[in-house]
């Protein structure tokens, strides 16, 4: 029972935007919570598509990569 991708993207974006006010960087695991019915791989694919659409962005420290919402986060973080 694959979830609808566009629907999932909407849910992820809503969830991430809500979260971003408190926590500007999210692990992929945090995004799973956007839709408990979606499989990890579906969430990953949807989230990565959102990045391509400029709606989410990556934060990579080199060792780990996290997601953020453009516009949120700390200006001091280069």
């Amino acid at each position: 029972m694959a979830v609808d991708k566009e629907e999932l993207k909407k849910k992820i974006l809503e969830y991430a935007t809500k979260k971003a006010k408190f926590k500007s960087k999210m692990y992929i695991k945090d995004l799973y919570k956007a839709d408990p019915n979606a499989k990890p791989r579906e969430v990953k694919n949807a989230a990565n598509e959102l990045v391509k659409e400029n709606k989410l962005e990556y934060f990579s420290s080199g060792s780990t990569t996290m997601y953020g919402v453009p516009g949120f986060g700390n200006p001091e973080q280069e």
């Binding site: 420290s61 990569t65 973080q77």
Partner: peptide, 19 residues
Amino acid sequence: KHGGIVGVFGYGGGVIGRY
């Protein structure tokens, strides 16, 4: 310094920031 956040558009890896 710690890397900070750099990369190329649409990729989550391959670039490591350094200052």
